[in-house]
Design a binder for these strands. Structure first.
Lengths: 191, 191
DNA sequence: GGAGTCAGTTAACGATGACTAACATTCGAG
DNA sequence: CTCGAATGTTAGTCATCGTTAACTGACTCC
């Protein structure tokens, strides 16, 4: 069978994401992760070469997914209407953040625990994603310097990624609407 | 001498904050912290009862400081003009975040590593601080349900606390102005 | 000038945790 | 039926780390 392997790997990544989000990379042991998927301890080494490799694959996956999504959404439909592109980027990011709060948290917190080389790759993907946003924002605010646009984009990421902190008082739909409205308003005033 | 003691404690707290912000609580050893202030290893036990106690005191200090600042700023001057109170809260939070990015980072990331009892105290202080914001927002948006206001407040915290991520491309003044403008705009549209 | 406290040192202990080794089981392919 | 790959297991190693113990010098106070 080939699929069990794939499933086991994904299972481990999911469980590890939840644990890392809750207690941090160094606060979770290999044994903990194994226990979370019903095997114990060193069985994980059949699927990953080590704890760092696990985190690395996780962060690369997230960054790659966001970048791909960003590249796809930023260039849809009317290239004229940067407004529509911005809305698409917002909706995409919000849906991801609401659907995978643990991944958002890990991506925000654990980048330093990944080995140097992979860290550079991850940062590159994150930069490419941010640049999609900056490109769209530059169309909306042609006179605004790039540095300011970058800072604004990161600020909006902070706003959108606040999801894990304020968990579950609002329905996901209401939360999505609120975040979209707030982010939209924040980005209109930066010129 | 009494002041050397005080200074040493503060020195240790500062160094630990920087290290925790950079590598996370579990990623920093007692020896690391000692080395950062020029003493080595277990000397810290002359000033703190342990590693957790150090973190606890740090987080309690931050939360208490923000809560005090919030209580002071939210009730200044005209009780009529909620606008002014909101501006004061924004300015205060932004100044703190820009002046102490490491503390913001630690407060965001390390709450789970503090023992249960102290954690409750810290959360209580954070809740009180957030409620100052919600009270002001409620005056501006009388028809908006509390849950939505709370979520909006946390989202704005996320925006303002994005400072550590987008470090130093803009001058502190420009950054402060940008964050203030964006947060203001985001909070106008939530009704 | 001795007594006591403050703030530091080095050495050791005990626990934890990442990782490895050696062995077991399942199961499909030839 | 058997071989071998895939996927586990348990036991053990080695490093790291929080914490304690025992000891030392400096400074204050009677």
């Amino acid at each position: 069978m080939k699929s069990p392997t794939r499933n086991r790997r994904a299972e481990i990544l999911d469980a590890a994401a939840a644990l890392f989000a809750a207690r941090g990379f160094h606060g979770v042991s290999i044994e903990d992760i194994g226990a979370a998927v019903g095997v114990s301890g060193p069985a994980l080494y059949r699927h990953f070469s080590g704890k760092e490799a696990l985190l690395t694959e996780m962060l690369l996956g997230i960054s790659e997914r966001l970048r791909e999504q960003g590249a796809r959404l930023a260039t849809t439909a009317d290239p004229d209407t940067a407004e529509a592109a911005l809305d698409a980027l917002l909706a995409g990011h919000i849906e991801f953040a609401l659907r995978h709060p643990a991944l958002i948290r890990v991506q925000e917190r654990e980048l330093d625990n990944v080995p140097e080389q992979a860290r550079r790759a991850i940062r590159r993907l994150q930069r490419l994603y941010a640049e999609e946003w900056v490109a769209v924002l530059a169309e909306l605010h042609p006179d605004c310097p790039q540095a300011r646009l970058r800072a604004a984009a990161h600020a909006v990421f902070g706003l959108l990624n606040s999801t894990p902190h304020s968990a579950g008082e609002l329905s996901p739909e209401a939360m999505a609407g609120l975040l979209h409205t707030m982010a939209r308003a924040a980005l209109c005033r930066i010129g």
